[in-house]
Simulated assay, not measured.
Amino acid sequence: MTKTTKLTLIKIIHTIIWFFFVAVIFYILYSGVFNKITVYTWIGIGLIILEGIVLLAFKMFCPLTLMARKYSDSEKENFDIFLPNWLAKNNKLIFTTIFAIGLIVVIIRTIYSLV
Results as ranks from 00 to 15, higher is better:
residue 47 L to Y: 03
residue 53 I to N: 06
residue 51 E to M: 12
residue 93 L to Q: 07
residue 75 E to N: 07
residue 49 I to E: 08
residue 65 T to F: 09
residue 86 W to A: 08
residue 84 P to L: 00
residue 65 T to E: 15
residue 96 T to A: 13
residue 90 N to R: 08
residue 72 S to V: 06
residue 54 V to P: 03
residue 73 D to H: 10
residue 78 N to H: 10
residue 46 G to R: 08
residue 58 F to H: 03
residue 39 V to N: 06
residue 83 L to Y: 08
residue 68 A to F: 04
residue 64 L to Q: 09
residue 83 L to N: 01
residue 79 F to D: 14
residue 67 M to V: 15
residue 99 F to V: 06
residue 87 L to Y: 12
residue 63 P to T: 03
residue 86 W to E: 06
residue 59 K to M: 11
residue 59 K to G: 07
residue 92 K to N: 14
residue 52 G to K: 00
residue 92 K to V: 15
residue 40 Y to R: 02
residue 50 L to P: 10
residue 91 N to I: 12
residue 79 F to P: 00
residue 69 R to P: 14
residue 86 W to S: 00
residue 42 W to K: 02
residue 42 W to M: 11
residue 54 V to N: 00
residue 71 Y to V: 10
residue 44 G to Y: 00
residue 103 L to V: 06
residue 67 M to H: 13
residue 77 E to M: 15
residue 76 K to V: 15
residue 41 T to D: 03
residue 69 R to T: 13
residue 69 R to F: 14
residue 100 A to T: 03
residue 54 V to F: 03
residue 43 I to P: 06
residue 83 L to H: 00
residue 86 W to Y: 14
residue 45 I to A: 00
residue 38 T to R: 04
residue 91 N to M: 15
residue 79 F to E: 13
residue 77 E to L: 13
residue 51 E to W: 15
residue 40 Y to D: 11
residue 93 L to F: 15
residue 64 L to D: 06
residue 67 M to T: 13
residue 39 V to D: 03
residue 88 A to N: 07
residue 61 F to G: 01
residue 66 L to P: 03
residue 86 W to D: 11
residue 101 I to C: 02
residue 89 K to M: 05
residue 77 E to R: 08
residue 81 I to N: 03
residue 89 K to N: 09
residue 49 I to C: 01
residue 52 G to A: 11
residue 85 N to Y: 05
residue 88 A to F: 03
residue 85 N to H: 04
residue 60 M to F: 14
residue 91 N to Q: 11
residue 96 T to W: 10
residue 96 T to R: 07
residue 79 F to A: 12
residue 82 F to H: 10
residue 86 W to M: 06
residue 92 K to Y: 10
residue 87 L to W: 10
residue 50 L to E: 12
residue 50 L to F: 13
residue 82 F to N: 05
residue 60 M to W: 14
residue 71 Y to D: 03
residue 94 I to M: 11
residue 45 I to P: 04
residue 79 F to H: 08
residue 78 N to I: 01
residue 49 I to K: 00
residue 39 V to R: 09
residue 46 G to Y: 13
residue 50 L to W: 07
residue 103 L to C: 12
residue 68 A to C: 09
residue 90 N to L: 07
residue 45 I to C: 04
residue 84 P to S: 04
residue 76 K to F: 14
residue 78 N to P: 05
residue 100 A to L: 08
residue 92 K to G: 14
residue 84 P to M: 01
residue 54 V to H: 07
residue 96 T to E: 05
residue 95 F to D: 08
residue 36 K to W: 15
residue 76 K to T: 15
residue 76 K to H: 12
residue 99 F to T: 01
residue 38 T to Y: 05
